[in-house]
């Protein structure tokens, strides 16, 4: 599935694509990981739970006092820190 999504997001079906980091996306959006910035700490740890380029994520919630972001990745909810999420570049196809 990873491969398939990757080709989809790179294919550029004519629609304009928006690039934002995971930390900037609002709750409720679905987006695909474009890349995890090289040199990000814990990059391997993220990769192990499926946070690799091409994976689709759903931003589920932001913690009450900031700091944590909850995302659904590979059918599981994971919480990660905003600072780390800022290193994950996402791509999202515009609605219209």
């Amino acid at each position: 599935m990873g491969e398939k999504e990757k080709t989809k997001s790179f294919s550029g079906s004519g629609k304009p694509e928006k690039e934002l980091t995971l930390a900037e996306l609002p709750v409720g959006t679905t987006a695909t990981i474009l890349k995890v910035m090289p040199g990000t700490r814990g990059r391997k740890k993220f990769a192990d739970v499926g946070l690799v380029a091409g994976t689709e994520l759903l931003i589920e919630a932001h913690a009450p006092f900031g700091g944590l972001i909850r995302v659904k990745v590979m059918e599981t909810s994971m919480a990660l820190h905003k600072d780390d999420a800022a290193n994950i570049v996402m791509t999202q196809e515009e609605e219209n």
Partner: peptide
């Protein structure tokens, strides 16, 4: 220190 990377599952 920076602390470990925080990654927690919400099962």
């Amino acid at each position: 220190g920076d602390g470990e990377v925080y990654l927690m599952e919400l099962p």
